[in-house]
Design a protein around this nucleic acid. Structure first.
Length: 476
DNA sequence: GCGATCAGCT
DNA sequence: CACAGCTGATCGC
């Protein structure tokens, strides 16, 4: 998602706002009467300059053709998507003072539920493709290559974020990687040769070790240190997502600031990041995975307490219980670290995951890993194997040591509507001696956390005020 | 055969 | 549903 800031001296990216706080399509006096709402239905006419940020912003919601190169044979999927006014969704009301300049002025979404957004499709598979010329594109039965969407490009720079699957991107010399999850690094391999890759040191180690990318392309940037790259000031900030994940902050020579959150979980601590407190952000690219009021989940700490308490209770009743935590390749480490510390037990997982976890260089984690499943009641398995049949099979291999399984599946999706914020209401699914808890341990922001994150910028801008309305998103 | 990429699936 | 993959088919080399 992007928030565009209104600054009269910076018209190239941050055009003026309309009454909804969305980027205005009125770029010149001649086009003053164009780009207005149509039919009272908030469908917008695309009149802005071809290829401009505003043009792409709106086109992406209704028409994929802006992402297509000329002469393409492939038609984009027909979808009726609209830019949603997040200010409205979050209940922020624009005041009457028409002279006021908001600190952040417009929003567009990145990856969220498709029924009420906008920019990015569920994943890149929905993006249009163009015929592949020169660069090979083997596999999958066609000769098409995807085109980098505008919202992965940082305006007025030669930088992109998480855009590795598009081959060589014209005008891009710096490819930023926000974190080491496959949907973000897709396209990176040992054959990468399209330009410099910037990421945190931890992510850099993983990229070199597991994707075998030529180290000469990989440039680690320490958190909280401002680097000057191609004349742009760049700072990586802790994203509170998975290990090595970063928000990327860009400050241009003309004063424009852009913040790309990658995937992140907004928290109070972020409100103290000096770069975010002291500087306006003109365009904000935001992770809106749970940008719907129905997603309410507790703090990580509360969930960890619940997991530890549940584990202790189980072991008290059934000392021969095997504790299983489901996890992706990286992420959710705090869940099993908390159990490990509370019970004073080691952590078993297979060799390939141990190799990844050891690459973090976290001594408090590495020291707790062990290579023998009999040695500890705490095992880490891929989240996909947290099914009763699979766990029953797994238990068989340790039948002399363990007689029951207590498993935790940590994700934000399992926790939304009915149970609200009451952890104690979570009911496990039980089959025989296998018990599986879906726990609301999320590494993405909840709706409220997203709202509060954005609100920080609005606060310092007195012309915006918070309205207690409960505006719901439009559902198509 | 190998590595990369795709659709389908969860 | 959507996240962050996983699997198997298919392609170029």
């Amino acid at each position: 998602m992007q928030l565009v800031q209104d600054e009269e001296e910076d018209i190239s990216v941050a055009e003026s706002l309309d009454d909804d706080g969305l980027p205005s399509l009125e770029l010149s006096p001649e086009s003053k009467d164009r780009g207005r709402e149509q039919n009272g239905n908030k469908d917008r006419v695309i009149e802005a300059a071809e290829g401009s940020f505003v043009s792409d912003f709106y086109r992406s919601g209704t028409d994929w053709s802006c992402l297509l190169e000329k002469n393409t044979q492939e038609r984009p999927p027909e979808r009726k998507l609209k830019q949603t006014n997040l200010f409205e969704l979050w209940g922020f009301k624009k005041p009457d003072d028409s002279n006021a300049k908001p600190r952040v002025s417009s929003l567009s979404l990145k990856r969220t539920r498709t029924q009420w957004i906008s920019v990015e499709s569920v994943n890149d598979r929905m993006n249009p493709k163009v015929p592949c010329l020169g660069n090979r594109s083997n596999g999958g039965g066609n000769n098409l290559r995807r085109v980098c969407p505008f919202y992965k490009k940082i305006p007025e720079t030669s930088f992109t974020v998480d855009a590795f699957r598009y081959g060589l991107i014209e005008g891009c010399s710096g490819y930023f990687l926000s974190h080491f999850h496959c949907d973000h690094y897709a396209g990176l391999s040992k054959r990468w040769s399209y330009g410099s890759i910037y990421c945190t040191p931890l992510t850099a180690r993983l990229v070199k070790k597991f994707l075998l990318v030529n180290p000469s392309f990989v440039h680690p940037l320490e958190l909280d240190i401002e680097y000057v790259i191609d004349g742009i000031k760049v700072t990586m900030l802790e994203a509170n997502h998975c290990p090595g994940a970063a928000l990327v902050h860009f400050r241009l020579e003309n004063g424009q600031c852009y913040l790309h959150t990658g995937d992140f979980r907004a928290c109070k601590l972020m409100q103290s990041y000096p770069l975010l407190v002291n500087h306006r952000v003109n365009v904000l690219y935001l992770d809106t995975t749970y940008c719907n009021p129905k997603y309410r989940f507790p703090s990580k700490e509360d969930v960890l307490d619940f997991i530890v308490k549940t584990t202790k209770n189980s072991l008290k009743r059934h000392p021969k219980t095997l504790i299983v935590v489901g996890a992706y390749s990286i992420g959710k480490e705090c869940v099993y670290l908390a159990i490990s510390e509370a019970l004073g037990v080691k952590i078993y997982t297979n060799a390939s995951r141990r190799r990844i976890l050891q690459s973090f260089d976290w001594t408090q984690l590495s020291g707790k890993l062990c290579s023998c499943g009999e040695e500890t009641p705490l095992h880490i398995l891929p989240i996909s194997s947290l099914r009763p049949e699979t766990l029953a099979e797994y238990l068989k291999t340790y039948k002399h040591k363990f007689t029951a399984v207590l498993a935790f599946r940590p994700t934000g999706w399992t926790y939304s509507e009915a149970s609200g914020n009451q952890l104690d209401l979570i009911k496990p699914s039980t089959r025989g001696n296998i018990m599986i808890y879906g726990v609301p341990y999320s590494e993405h922001s909840s709706f409220l956390e997203l709202k509060e994150f954005v609100q920080e910028w609005l606060k310092v801008s007195p012309q915006w005020k918070v309205s207690p309305t409960s505006t719901r998103p439009r559902v198509n």
